[in-house]
Design a protein around this nucleic acid. Structure first.
Lengths: 347, 347
DNA sequence: ATTCCTGTTGCAAACGTTTGCAGGATGATT
DNA sequence: AATCATCCTGCAAACGTTTGCAACAGGAAT
């Protein structure tokens, strides 16, 4: 008796069938017991649960997923546009990803992360969706793939995108009102006395384009010259020297073209601050500077950075909430979050 | 004819069987064709591939995974110890994660991310491994789970861990030589004239304990008083005030207990720098300060931070390389990476 | 004794792929 | 014409779960 029990314990129990044999019931019953269905006798269930615990048995998720046609996994995809190296280390996206992981876990979903380079692989989104591995997908950042995403959205409901909202778009998006954010920034710069504004960053990506446009709105409304775009890459290594060049070009012995800079992200703003200091320009006295995101770094620069805050946690909650509702069959509207001006000392 | 073709195109082709019907062959042949096996006639293959492209067909990964007993997915798990809120936004882990995503993608694997709170769920690692969803697992950070990881390693080969290496441990680990890093830091502080050293951070996690121990080694060898631990949480919000308190306690009107601070991470070092400045202490003249990691922020503080560099990209490469070799059946040794002192202006 | 619940279980067919094996062509060699 | 090797393809059995349906036991109601 003891011998046979020992032998039983030694037996590898990998499948529900193994466990069923041990418990002296059919596989179906084990499945129902483990799933907590009410149709199974309490004593049987307890016995099965005990055996499962004892042998450390876990049902195979692949098989379960195949049979039930759902996986309990949400795909999170980061499309990398032109500026490959940047995005992955981008603090903003990474922070968002962290919150997403939290939020999905809370709702019992796993997270499958995929980075794609759309240029190399036109099929990036379909491939992910069609793989059968995920119940739904969250796209982080529209990059330059707005049209592709729109197309896919027409035939696939279980998708939510982080990004910028455009009038009449068909895919469900969650994001900050970037244009309003741009307006807030420009207004603050101007209120501080700035008249010659510049926008630092890449105006290609939609979010940034909207921030730029917001600043333009204000400049136009106030009758100021239009905002000067200072184009840079986003990766810190390349951006530094690009910023230095821009500054050298616009702050010369003959004069200063710029007295207010709106940076597309806090990361760029921080770099810009360093460069301004290196070129002997005082912030905010000579130039006013304002960032975007309110990442932790904004509090640590010297002087601390005035910036436009995005509520990343709320964004993550929104993304997950909307996606789950879509999985449940609801039709959902996009969610536009309000930006908030955080006044510190650079503007 | 045209009508029937149109009808064909409209038909949803979800399964390999659908495609087989369209192509007029058996499912087996389609499977082989799509897998690129040599046993299938070139013309047949081309026809099948064309049809697959046309209908946007992708084989179901769940079914494939189930049948082949491998999924093409690597699990990445971040165990969160005491300090929950911190880790997920921790720049270091996030950067590592980014590189891991790159590296795994390059090798044709997908990445399944899971955050766990071991305190709530003693079973965290077995559950992930036993789910059948992943071919192998990378654990980012040992947290306080060293023993649990050791146990699991005895029965499961497809695991590699980022963390600290200990003499005689059984699990395969990749990580920086933290103790050596600690020594480098302390030596630099002392070479600059510091005699009363402090370690800023949590000495609980193994990596940090090793850094602390390294600093101790040097202090002892030089006959200096032992290194004073200044315990803080790692999340920026809590850490700031904790640091302020520590500083207030050790830099009083009566005198200064400390003239060299070794911070467990750059993030803490940057916060510390801010607090030192707030309390009117000059770096490096009054106090020398040195960080760990060489995150981007280290270059942007004022003055820029002297720190001990970890090669994160190499770490990610090592993790993936070792894991894949283990999947292939090899037995692998742990990989200990050398830290590198980066001298800037704070020490 | 018969009928009819109610609660619990077993049976077997899915889910969509992959793959060992056998078999059918085709052409080359005897 | 017979034999054989070479290619290619089809058949059917897996992979491990879930779940509709049928069946069975036991008890209550007729």
């Amino acid at each position: 008796m003891a011998a046979s029990e020992e032998q039983e314990a030694r037996i590898q129990v990998r499948t529900i069938t193994d466990l069923a044999r041990l418990a002296g019931v059919s596989p179906g019953t084990v499945s129902r017991a483990l799933a907590g269905k009410s149709l199974v006798n309490t004593k049987t269930r307890e016995k099965i649960e005990a055996l499962a615990r004892e042998h450390g048995f876990r049902p195979n998720q692949m098989a379960s997923g195949l049979r039930r046609q759902k996986t309990g996994v949400i795909g999170v995809v980061i499309p990398l546009g032109h500026d490959i190296r940047q995005q992955i280390s981008d603090s903003f996206f990474m922070t968002l990803l962290g919150f997403l992981a939290d939020e999905l876990t809370t709702h019992g979903y796993d997270l499958m992360l995929r980075r794609v380079v759309p240029d190399d692989d036109a099929d990036w989104l379909d491939r992910f969706i069609g793989s059968g591995m995920i119940d739904g997908v969250i796209v982080i950042g529209q990059s330059d793939q707005f049209d592709r995403i729109e197309e896919v959205a027409d035939g696939y409901r279980s998708m939510v995108v982080w990004g910028n909202h455009q009038e009449g778009q068909r895919h469900c998006v969650v994001g900050t009102d970037n244009r309003l954010g741009g307006r807030l920034a420009a207004e603050r710069l101007i209120a501080g006395g700035a008249r010659k504004l510049a926008f630092l960053g890449d105006t290609g990506p939609m979010e940034f384009a909207a921030r730029f446009a917001g600043a333009q709105d204000v400049a136009a409304r106030m009758g100021l010259p239009s905002v000067l775009p200072l184009v840079t890459h986003l990766s810190p290594d390349r951006a530094s020297e690009e910023i230095a060049k821009h500054l050298a070009a616009h702050f010369t012995a003959q004069g200063r073209d710029i007295d207010g800079i709106f940076a597309a992200t806090d990361t760029l703003a921080a770099l810009c601050l360093t460069e301004l200091r290196a070129q002997g320009l005082a912030v905010p006295d000579d130039v006013k500077l304002i960032g975007f995101d309110d990442l932790p770094i904004a509090r640590q620069t010297i002087p601390p950075l005035t910036t436009v805050r995005q509520d990343i946690a709320a964004g993550a909650r929104g993304l997950v909430d909307l996606l789950l509702r879509r999985l449940g069959g609801e039709t959902t509207e996009s969610l536009v979050l309000p930006p908030e001006l955080v006044v510190r000392e650079t503007a």
